[in-house]
Simulated scan of single mutants.
Amino acid sequence: MDIFYITDTQVTLNQQPAPDIATAAGFLWLDATHDEVSAAPEVWRDQIEALSGTQVYDLHLKDITNLSHPSYFDATQDYEMVVFRKLTLSDAVPAPKSEPKRKIPAALNKLTTSPISFLLMQNVLVTVRPQHSRTVDLARHRLLDYKQKPDSNTHGARLPTSPEELMLRLLNAMVDQYLELRHPLTQQLDRWQHALLDPRRPFNNWMALLDSRLELRKLDNLCEEQRDAIQELRDHIVDNHDGNSRAKDLLLVRTNDVMEHISRVLNHARRLEASLESAVQIHFAAMAHRTSEIMRTLTVITALFMPLTLITGIFGMNFEVMPLLKNSAGFWITMAGMGILVVLLLLYFRSKQYLEERSRSRFDS
């Protein structure tokens, strides 16, 4: 577990001895991984109690080590707990062997998630995260590389002033990772739409399409859980924050910003799901239209040959005396009559616009 001591001007890592949080001017950030906590949960809890003076409850300790826990918020008299599911590198979390192998596009493979737990205590922020976390690693590097700017420079980055602010910064960066997926997901949807509506190549990759819809539905549910957790955190800040009004307003602004980003991801996921559903419906409508065109062509051909079949059936009767039967020009007269009949039928079908749409589609192609 790494111990960050953050003040208004500097950040130190693993300072020995650890600062006394009761008299320190800043706050502590205690950063641990799931593997560290799962290996010795009681030892980790004792370390947290020694540094913060607060003991983590047994049920919350189980929640922290539960890698399938959804996003949620809980508050006690001693601390607040936030569990937030973040994006995880797909190669960092292998799929369980019991799950069947699915053909999911590369863009949707990036939707693998894992939980990160936050414990907000008095002047202490505790995080328990996966081993590979781009957001937390980047935040650590930024804090350690921080250099105080001159007072005249008002545009430089500043250090977080409270555990709540640091947590909201981390949450905001995690949600922004979902926003980065909008472009590849939109491109993947465009490829699905082209594949579904391509008349030259029938679409048969239905299992991959179904898996993609399931992944988008998972993203939808994930954003709902995230938004509910952050909403409960916001309500808790409004009801119980004891700081000055400016600090409270800044926390509410950051909380609202996180919720707004989650809503953007949620709306985008729903738009993608609706667009994909529309593409599937258009695909089946196009298939029904092509089937209708084929049936129309077969119907016209059948209508053209029905009178010809009638004529050949009449001349195939076994009568000794029949018109044109013994006439040397009878065959050609019959063929000419059949040809004229076909032409008349075609003109009739065109007047009824049975062939107009078919001919127009050939002209457009």
Rank of each mutant, 00 (worst) to 15 (best):
residue 45 R to T: 10
residue 178 Y to C: 08
residue 11 V to C: 03
residue 354 Y to H: 11
residue 265 V to R: 04
residue 224 E to F: 07
residue 255 T to S: 13
residue 39 A to F: 00
residue 24 A to Q: 07
residue 171 L to H: 01
residue 223 C to E: 11
residue 33 T to C: 08
residue 251 L to C: 03
residue 138 L to H: 13
residue 155 H to G: 10
residue 295 M to L: 11
residue 279 A to Y: 00
residue 193 Q to K: 13
residue 353 Q to Y: 00
residue 293 E to H: 04
residue 148 Q to E: 12
residue 13 L to A: 09
residue 268 H to S: 09
residue 174 M to D: 03
residue 168 L to G: 01
residue 13 L to P: 02
residue 328 S to F: 00
residue 116 I to L: 11
residue 321 V to Q: 09
residue 166 L to A: 03
residue 295 M to I: 15
residue 247 A to W: 01
residue 150 P to E: 14
residue 218 K to Y: 08
residue 210 L to M: 11
residue 150 P to G: 14
residue 351 S to V: 12
residue 212 S to R: 06
residue 66 N to I: 13
residue 184 P to M: 13
residue 301 I to N: 05
residue 15 Q to N: 01
residue 96 P to R: 11
residue 83 V to R: 08
residue 188 Q to F: 01
residue 126 V to Y: 00
residue 298 L to S: 05
residue 157 A to T: 11
residue 177 Q to K: 11
residue 255 T to H: 04
residue 23 T to D: 06
residue 188 Q to R: 05
residue 182 R to T: 06
residue 77 Q to H: 11
residue 17 P to Y: 03
residue 44 W to E: 15
residue 315 F to L: 15
residue 280 V to G: 06
residue 138 L to S: 15
residue 346 L to T: 07
residue 128 V to C: 09
residue 144 L to V: 09
residue 179 L to F: 04
residue 37 V to F: 03
residue 299 T to R: 12
residue 116 I to S: 04
residue 253 V to L: 05
residue 257 D to L: 06
residue 228 D to C: 08
residue 272 L to C: 03
residue 95 A to Q: 04
residue 318 N to F: 01
residue 135 T to H: 07
residue 91 D to E: 12
residue 231 Q to E: 10
residue 282 I to E: 03
residue 82 V to C: 10
residue 184 P to S: 13
residue 213 R to F: 06
residue 117 S to C: 09
residue 92 A to E: 09
residue 63 D to R: 08
residue 182 R to V: 10
residue 201 R to C: 11
